[in-house]
Write a protein that binds this DNA or RNA. Structure first.
Length: 467
RNA sequence: GGCGAGGUAGCUCAGCUGGUUAGAGCGUCGGAUUCAUAAUCCGGAGGUCGGGGGAUCGUGCCCCCCUCUCGCUACCA
């Protein structure tokens, strides 16, 4: 079936899977979940078939490491945060059709099958390389889990990937007196074999698909980032890791290794869709395989390469899958002038907000939408939060609605009068534009420029009775 | 360091392929009003469009240099 951009048969909307090493904060909401939810709600209200898909991302070395440090199992970590995240989304009112977990069987099987199929088709290459190894903990180390003295500035607690003191990018092997953050052992180099996805093989299709067909409809930050990757020349990317936490590599020689979390996470969108379809008695396949489906990935700007280059390459290699029509990556939200940070505990956590501001979901939704970081990083301040609530939601919009009710009761005995009387009131040019301004806006991405209209609209409404 | 995206009124943002006095919402100042006055309506003031060069009859928008922020550059996600 031919794809009709303006009238797709159904929509598959995904929101980045939250990583379960911490709760959800306002930055996640502003950049991903609130815009995705607005889009999904709008499409449903206008009669579209929508699958709004999400779930917890529960694998990866960061969770494994966190568990080790806290002396608990990875399972305990993911259960804890999946619980908090799941509950806070529910209470906040993000209307996912399904919220799954990448630790579930359905996801392990889906991902495993995906890997096997690519493996059998010869879509991977195998390479043996030398990696840093902690012989005490018996574990390979990612660069960030090695600390030592920075060779450039002498800072004694530089990470293997970057020195936070002087900001320079490092290789873990450059550090003076390197040691593992797990056991304090001195890392050694050890050989290991991994499977790589040769992105260079997919360069031609990515070039055409992104650089040519999405030059004008993708956001500049997304397009620019993709172009940068493609122009630099794509390289093979490892899709397996030496780790005991994750989805086991399902082919010969993969013992003791797991799939790279970024290989399995996006496939989580697919398994979550399957889970939903099973529960609802639907067929999941059209949502991922039919050309008349429109798929949109909502993500933060740090995820662009995975959703625009790597995942599409995986889908394309597999065959039979559609690719996203758009990937509206948002920028980041700061809090009172500083970067949000889970590890530094600098954030407004959603579950805490819900406790401290009961029944005030809409206030936060409004503030985060009005202040959405669509083209650049924005700053959330409590002062602004207060001002938007008091001045805009309560004073302008709230008063307008209240006034409509008061006047309707007072002059029309509570019954909405016949609209024909409006013809006496003169210029209604603005009213005629309302459908364009309010009904159509979320059809295009991003949503920028739509929010001030709630105030304009209220002002217009306030003027009417005096005419 | 390399690459990408940003730096437009006090705040949050628009500004199409360069073309009359750079726009909106909120805030601010002044006036009006009553069905909402811990509100609303009307009007005004506020920008050398990050800085410096250049090309052009003419640029916020093009070219060069510099600067600040964030992201990617890594086996963190």
């Amino acid at each position: 079936m031919a794809k009709d951009q303006h009238n797709p048969a159904r929509y598959t909307i995904t929101a980045a899977l939250p990583y379960t090493n911490g709760p959800i904060h306002i930055g996640h909401l502003a950049g991903v979940y609130v815009p995705a939810d607005i889009y999904a709600r709008y499409l449903r209200l206008t009669g579209n078939d929508v699958a709004f898909i999400c779930g917890s991302d529960e694998h990866g070395v960061a969770i494994s490491m966190k568990a080790k440090k806290e002396g608990v199992t990875p399972k305990e970590i993911i259960d804890k945060y999946d619980g908090i995240i799941r509950k806070s989304f529910e209470e906040f009112g993000i209307t996912f059709n399904n919220y799954s977990r990448t630790s579930r069987d359905i996801h392990h099987k889906t991902t495993s099958d995906f890997f096997k199929k690519l493996y059998e088709q010869g879509d991977f290459i195998e390479k043996t390389t030398e990696q840093l190894y902690d012989s005490e903990a018996k574990q390979f180390l990612a660069d960030r889990f090695v600390v030592g003295t920075c060779p450039k500035c002498g800072h004694e607690e530089a990470y293997g990937d970057q020195c936070e003191n002087c900001g320079s990018t490092l290789n873990a092997t450059d550090l003076i007196n390197p040691k593992s953050t797990i056991s304090n052992a001195v890392p050694t180099l050890k050989e290991t074999k991994h499977w790589f996805l040769p992105l260079d093989r997919h360069e031609d299709f990515l070039k055409e698909w992104i650089l040519e067909s999405h030059k004008s409809d993708w956001k500049p930050n997304v397009y620019g980032q993709c172009k940068s990757w493609i122009d630099d020349g794509l390289k093979p990317r490892a899709v397996t890791r030496d780790l005991d936490w994750g989805i086991p590599v399902p082919v010969e020689g993969g013992e003791g290794k797991v799939l790279y979390v970024w290989f399995d996470a996006p496939i989580g969108y697919i398994s979550s869709t399957k889970e939903w379809a099973e529960r609802e008695g639907k067929d999941w396949e059209p949502y991922w395989k039919s050309e008349d489906t429109k798929m949109v990935h909502f993500i933060g700007k740090d995820n662009i390469v995975f959703h625009c280059i790597i995942f599409p390459a995986i889908l394309k290699a597999h065959g039979g899958y559609i690719l996203p029509d758009n990937v509206p990556a948002n920028e980041f939200l700061n809090l009172e002038g500083n970067k949000l940070s889970t590890s530094k505990n600098w954030a407004v956590w959603l579950h805490e907000y819900l406790q401290e501001f009961p029944d005030m979901q809409d206030v936060l939704r409004y503030t985060l939408t009005a202040n959405a970081p669509e083209t650049k990083d924005n700053d959330f301040t409590w002062k602004d939060f207060q001002a938007r609530n008091n001045n805009e939601l309560v004073a302008i919009f709230g008063n307008f609605i209240n006034r409509v009710v008061v006047l309707t009761n007072k002059y029309y005995e509570g019954v909405i009068p016949n609209p024909s009387e409006f013809s006496k009131v003169g210029d209604f040019g603005y009213a005629k534009k309302i459908p364009d301004n309010y009904i159509k806006f979320p059809r295009t991405l991003p949503f920028s420029g739509s929010w001030p209209k709630i105030n304009e609209f209220s002002t217009f409404g306030q003027q009417v009775p005096s005419r």
